[in-house]
Simulated scan of single mutants.
Amino acid sequence: MFHITEIKKNQSPITFDKKLDIKELLLNRDDSIIDVKDVRAKGQISYEDNLFLLNYDLDYLIVLPSSRSMEPVELTEHILVSEVFSEDKEVSSDEAISEELVLPIESDTISLEDSVVDNILLNIPLKVLTKKEEETDELPSGESWSVLTEEQYQSQKLQKKKDTNPFNALEGLFDDN
């Protein structure tokens, strides 16, 4: 947590290297996360031209369920984060806020923990696979169901359309045999 007055007082950027325990915060916001460990934010925060600049490297290990089998998958992630904050009401009502280029400061502090949680949640991949699942194209299936890729689905749909075409019976009728 950085106090705005402390940031403004320093002429040079405030550097930090923090290990964070934010597992509970993450699990409260996204219950699909199994675990998160070794969260480390290393960077600096500074004040220039009525804007607070927060830049840091974020490293962490996150455990998510596989998209196919729901087995736990460990992912080591590295993210470069750059955020701009403003306490100025004029800038706050500007289109920069509406486009999320500048974040408003709602209290007298900037929370590193909130920034880290938000950035981890924004960077959760949609496709998470175990090493075995990455090596094969085999998709899960059951007794009367199976998972298809988009290409397989489109191909199956096209074949079904051909099979139900009423003019299929006329095919080959006028061949030159």
Rank of each mutant, 00 (worst) to 15 (best):
M1G: 07
F2N: 01
H3R: 15
H3I: 14
H3N: 15
I4F: 08
T5R: 15
E6A: 14
K9F: 12
N10A: 14
S12D: 13
S12I: 14
P13E: 07
T15R: 11
F16G: 00
F16L: 01
D17G: 00
D21Y: 09
I22K: 00
K23M: 04
K23A: 13
R29W: 03
I33G: 02
I34E: 08
D35Q: 08
V36M: 05
V39W: 02
R40I: 09
A41T: 00
K42Y: 02
G43S: 08
Q44L: 14
Q44G: 08
Q44V: 07
Y47H: 15
E48W: 09
N50S: 12
F52Y: 11
F52N: 09
F52A: 10
Y56F: 15
D57K: 10
D57R: 07
L58A: 01
L58R: 00
Y60A: 00
Y60V: 00
L61Q: 14
V63C: 10
L64D: 04
P65V: 08
P65G: 04
S67D: 05
S67Y: 03
S67R: 00
R68D: 09
R68T: 02
S69A: 06
S69N: 06
V73P: 06
V73L: 07
V73N: 05
E74P: 06
E77G: 03
H78E: 14
L80M: 10
S82E: 15
V84L: 11
V84C: 07
E87R: 06
E87W: 04
K89Y: 08
K89L: 14
E90C: 05
V91P: 04
V91R: 09
D94M: 08
E95C: 02
I97C: 10
S98L: 11
L101E: 14
V102P: 02
I105K: 07
D108M: 05
D108V: 06
D108P: 03
T109G: 03
I110M: 02
S111M: 02
L112D: 01
L112K: 01
E113T: 04
V116F: 00
V117M: 00
V117A: 00
D118S: 14
D118Q: 15
N119L: 05
I120Q: 00
L121M: 08
I124S: 01
L126T: 11
K131V: 12
E134R: 07
E135H: 06
E135P: 01
L139P: 03
L139N: 05
L139Q: 08
G142P: 10
S144M: 10
V147S: 06
T149Q: 03
E151F: 12
E151G: 06
Q152W: 07
Q154S: 13
Q154C: 09
K157S: 13
L158C: 01
L158Q: 13
Q159C: 02
K162L: 15
T164G: 07
T164H: 09
N165D: 15
N168F: 08
N168S: 13
N168T: 09
E171Q: 13
G172P: 03
G172W: 00
L173G: 01
L173H: 02
D176P: 01
N177D: 13
